[in-house]
């Protein structure tokens, strides 16, 4: 998966029509709630086999924080 594909899939997971960038802020966005956090944990586990810690998820500020958890699986 490339960075671009990751961002598209993440937007789908979060059910947002915004174009996400690595620098996009999540913590202040209206769609970053416990439901989204669950969806992201599920996405990371299913797509990358990565079990993110609760701390990783709840401390997320920007999209790049999620990206960092799985960056070794990103191709570009």
């Amino acid at each position: 998966m490339t960075t671009k594909e990751f961002l598209i899939e993440l937007a789908d997971v979060l059910q947002t029509e915004d174009n996400l960038e690595l620098s996009s802020n999540l913590s202040n966005s209206e769609y970053w709630d416990s439901l989204s956090q669950m969806s992201v944990m599920s996405f990371l586990a299913k797509k990358f086999g990565v079990h993110a810690s609760l701390e990783d998820i709840t401390m997320t500020d920007k999209v790049s924080d999620i990206f960092d958890i799985v960056k070794e699986h990103i191709e570009d």
């Binding site: 599920s42 079990h51 609760l54």
Partner: peptide, 11 residues
């Protein structure tokens, strides 16, 4: 604690 339960469930 929904996230903790979800974490347990998927792990």
């Amino acid at each position: 604690n929904g996230l903790e339960v979800f974490n347990f469930t998927t792990n």
